[in-house]
């Protein structure tokens, strides 16, 4: 009776606090590839210099049972301190930054600038035949921007992947200040 459950795949955004030590990213990625889980996006950077911790944001997709597995498996990794499922916890913010180069001439340049303006993109570089825009937002906003630019010239894209945090005053993964290093 307990076998029947939802087998639809769902998208989850996970935040993982890890020791910033060699090989830790390989452990996380190796877990996903070795067990056949999906990674849609992964970002990592140090967030706590005092305690030498990094935060990894992963967007993954799977059935609810697989998502539970992903979290439990991540939690087993020795240098992993904390795993949070932002999607399950509720309201959270996901943002991505992208650098988009568009190479074009004439009318298309004006259109590109106009669209960039609507998307609140910054122009970081321009030549007579190209722009580099910086745009931040949800993944879908960035995808929409890229699609529009694609119709306006040759496009090159560099995206950071999703970074995420919960809304509200809950501090899930506190970092320490310099004078507050005791556990």
């Amino acid at each position: 009776m307990s076998q029947h459950m939802n087998n639809d795949e769902v998208r989850h955004t996970l935040s993982i606090l890890v020791d910033n030590e060699p090989g830790v990213l390989a452990r996380v990625i190796g877990l996903f590839s070795g067990r056949g889980y999906n990674i849609e996006s992964l970002t990592v950077a140090g967030v706590d210099e005092t305690k030498n911790l990094s935060r990894i944001s992963i967007v993954t997709r799977g059935t609810p049972m697989v998502i539970e597995q992903v979290k439990a498996q991540l939690d087993r990794i020795v240098p992993v301190h904390m795993v949070r499922d932002l999607t399950q916890q509720g309201l959270h913010i996901e943002r991505e930054l992208a650098l988009i180069k568009v190479v074009n001439k004439g009318e298309a340049r004006i259109e590109a600038l106009r669209i960039a303006d609507t998307f609140r993109a910054n122009t970081l570089d321009s030549t007579l035949e190209s722009f580099v825009f910086e745009v931040t937002g949800s993944s879908s906003k960035i995808s929409a921007f890229v699609e529009l630019m694609r119709s306006l010239g040759h496009v090159e894209v560099s995206r950071t992947g999703v970074s995420a945090i919960s809304r509200g005053l809950n501090v899930d993964m506190p970092i320490r200040t310099q004078n507050e290093t005791k556990d």
């Binding site: 597995q69 939690d75 087993r76």
Partner: peptide
């Protein structure tokens, strides 16, 4: 091992 629970069989 928490990851052994609900891995193969839903309990």
């Amino acid at each position: 091992d928490k990851s052994s629970i609900n891995k193969n069989i839903r309990v």
